[in-house]
């Protein structure tokens, strides 16, 4: 959490995370830096001091530089991409084999490792990714306080790369719905109402969700935006992590393919269940 608090500093202004005490080291260093060159030189005079400053510099660079924010964005994004693979695999089972789907869902729902370790990590991943996205967006807007009267962004950069915040927001809104639909339901089933375990409920619960047209439509639209988000974000995360070599063209192709195929699969599943309701 300390790391988090540093990450959320915007241009040196503190946000409301109450970790001031531990942060003091950074502030001391910062003040020293600002009082002019010769003072820093004096500060560097002794080796001990030098070591201290170097450590501080490195630490501060690792957690609150613009590049570090990019690393966090990229790593959390890549983590979520891995999660998507898992998610889409299990979901595809709902189309191919309802039994396997039930089994897998039950395992995910009741395995303590998944429930109490992986699930919080996943939620944290999502939170970090979108909060950091906002932080970056706010900073970026501040970096151009006065806008151009005429700005032809389309001339030099694709739409998706310029509108990650919007595709991201749609995906975020979708996640709220998705949580409401499935996660809240699960939580209340398991912990609030404390109903008994039922190995067979998952398949028909899922299919039923897609009965209303509006929900299916919302899901499909969200998947389109997810695709756009991934189209730029997946490949871009490698660039942010400094990966740019002979494999880059291949990685980029794979990432773009992924950005199309995975959301397409999700959309297919939603539409499939909408069109094939369970008839009792």
């Amino acid at each position: 959490m300390l790391l988090l608090s540093k990450l959320f500093e915007i241009n040196g202004h503190k946000s409301h995370f109450p970790f001031l005490k531990f942060n003091k080291g950074f502030w001391v260093f910062k003040i020293n830096l600002n009082i002019g060159h010769s003072d820093v030189e004096n500060l560097l005079e002794t080796r001990l001091c030098r070591k201290f400053v170097e450590n501080q510099l490195r630490m501060s660079g690792l957690i609150k530089s613009s590049l570090a924010r990019k690393y966090v964005m990229a790593l959390s994004g890549l983590f979520l991409v891995i999660f998507l693979v898992l998610h889409v695999t299990i979901n595809l089972a709902s189309v191919i084999s309802p039994d396997f789907f039930n089994e897998a869902s039950h395992f995910m729902g009741y395995n303590p490792l998944v429930q109490f370790l992986m699930q919080p990590i996943l939620i944290l991943g999502v939170v970090i990714h979108f909060v950091m996205g906002f932080v970056l967006e706010i900073q970026n807007r501040k970096a151009r306080a006065i806008n151009y009267v005429k700005y032809k962004g389309s001339a030099n950069a694709p739409w998706v790369s310029r509108n990650m915040i919007y595709s991201g927001l749609v995906v975020l809104a979708f996640l709220v719905l998705h949580f409401y639909d499935f996660w809240i339901h699960e939580m209340s089933y398991k912990y609030v109402e404390a109903l008994p375990e039922d190995l067979t409920r998952y398949y028909h619960e899922t299919v039923e969700k897609f009965a209303p047209f509006w929900r299916t439509a919302l899901y499909v639209i969200s998947f389109v935006l997810l695709s756009l988000h991934l189209w730029h974000g997946f490949a871009s995360s490698f660039q942010s992590m400094g990966v740019n070599n002979k494999y880059t063209p291949g990685i980029t192709k794979f990432a773009k393919l992924f950005a199309v195929v995975v959301p397409l699969a999700f959309a297919f599943i939603a539409i499939y269940h909408h069109l094939n309701p369970i008839t009792h």
Binding site: Q139, A157, S161, H232
Partner: peptide, 29 residues
């Protein structure tokens, strides 16, 4: 007070000297 890089690639496209995005990756690394 410059903004953060979001890898849109606009800089490379508009650079009059064709400086490549590879440099940004190298700096990240």
């Amino acid at each position: 007070g410059f903004g953060n890089c979001t890898n849109t690639g606009a800089c490379e496209m508009e650079c009059p000297k064709g400086i490549s995005l590879e440099n940004i990756a190298r700096m990240n690394r």
